[in-house]
Design a protein around this nucleic acid. Structure first.
Ligand code: NAD
Ligand code: NAD
Lengths: 203, 203
DNA sequence: GACGTTTTGTTCTCCCGTTCACAAACTCCT
DNA sequence: AGGAGTTTGTGAACGGGAGAACAAAACGTC
């Protein structure tokens, strides 16, 4: 979040910022921001603030997005198309190297300059591009199988959009994005507003 | 998450389950699950477990998804199309009532049985369908404006896909989904694996 | 060079979510 | 009916994140 906020500030031509300003841009408390940054090192100057470009680089380096990470997307349906076409990944340190789908009818398609390839090509693509991050955008029933194949072929980080719990071996990281749950959380608070007006805010 | 897990169990024909089983299906610790459920009431039977259908209804009622919530989606680009076409929202308590876009060229389109309408129709649509939940899938620069218009027209919960911090008045809830940040979190752990192998797992 | 101002880095405290562990409650079998 | 075996609900301990507050450091001014 801080990286995103710093990029925004840099685009506006800001060269220096205080913890207060950056915290506002990132939507957090300034004390929390300073504590978070202090874990990376002492990159600010007391009485002055932080150098935007310098701090941006330091955070990018710490996260590991100074070079591009190759990524494969599996499941080029509605969501897969949107992800493949999204330009924001490229500018934030990721490069989509392959789009895979089990449905042969998809294999004639070209999305965002990449041809959709057979899911069977997974192993060779992962090996060739040294891919460690995979994105799953298949239906829920297929997700575990896809994850297993990914892990077997060498992927060690998975971003899962399918509404299922994936089980993976130790050492493999999974993050899930479940949009229905996000909406349900909003609905819950919405319902409570109707019953007891005021007082509730989402973190 | 529990609701999703319970629906899965119900689909499999399971009528009763223990906290251990449900916790496994939801991917959490069983003690946590029991404590969470205890906040809703005492819906289990000691020595037996939980009745799947009964508990499912109780959770749905607590969340407020026993009836459908009307939802508007603003910004029918790559992501907006995917969201509009997603059938999972419908089955989880949400009904997309309108698709809005500022670009007049989009207004001839019909997506998932709904015509894409002008953003200026927001107020009338929100009033007509009593919409309280809005989804923002526009570019980041437009997101704050869209949010302001939503709030002004009566929306009190926003799901934001644009990589920006939205500022909204008290009483309005915002949840954000930032896919680049999800990938960056994976990249961070990935980088650390390369440096110090083993030992790290994402929550 | 000393002093006031600004802003970071850090400590301390508070609070909340997570987990363990166990008593209470229920079922089943004899 | 009683006892063995399960499984829930919850009290207690633990851990960690969030914010308030302050000392240390840099800068500008006289
Ligand atoms: N579309 C959305 O906005 C949205 C929102 C929330 C969650 N999701 C979830 O994301 C996932 C994808 O959604 P979608 O709308 O794009 O679905 P979709 O049906 O449009 O696309 C799924 C694609 O996956 C492919 N596929 C199926 N099995 C496969 C396998 N074993 N290996 C490789 N590819 C396989 C299919 O051929 C298809 O092209 C689903 O799990 C859905 O629940 C989607
Ligand atoms: N596509 C993805 O997979 C993806 C992934 C992560 C984040 N996002 C974010 O989601 C948002 C949408 O992404 P996208 O790829 O769909 O972009 P897009 O450019 O394809 O679509 C944006 C749509 O919003 C419309 N729009 C612009 N200004 C508007 C306004 N003021 N009011 C109403 N509509 C307006 C445009 O006409 C366009 O149709 C972006 O903020 C992007 O950063 C997208």
């Amino acid at each position: 979040m801080y990286l995103r906020a710093l990029t925004g500030l840099a685009d506006d031509g800001t060269t220096t910022c205080s913890s207060e300003e950056l915290a506002a841009a990132a939507g957090v408390n300034s004390a929390k921001l300073r504590k978070d940054l202090s874990h990376l090192g002492s990159y600010g100057t007391r009485g002055v603030g932080y150098d935007v470009e310098y701090l941006r680089y330091q955070i990018a380096r710490e996260i590991g997005v100074t070079q591009d990470w190759p990524v494969v997307i599996v499941g080029i349906g509605n969501l897969g198309h949107a992800l493949a076409n999204y330009s924001g990944f490229r500018s934030r340190g990721f490069r989509v190297v392959a789009l895979l789908d089990a449905d042969p009818r998809r294999h004639t398609e070209v999305v965002a300059g990449l041809e959709v390839r057979s899911f069977d090509d997974l192993e060779s693509i992962v090996a060739e591009h040294d891919v460690s991050i995979g994105v799953i955008a298949t239906p829920a029933v297929a997700a575990q199988d896809v994850a297993d194949r990914m892990v077997a072929s060498g992927v060690t980080s998975i971003l899962n959009f399918a509404p299922t719990v994936l089980s993976v071996p130790d050492g493999v990281d999974v993050r899930k994005v479940d949009l229905s749950i996000e909406l349900q959380i909003l609905a819950y608070h919405e319902q409570r507003k109707a019953v007891a007006p005021g007082s509730e805010v989402v973190s």
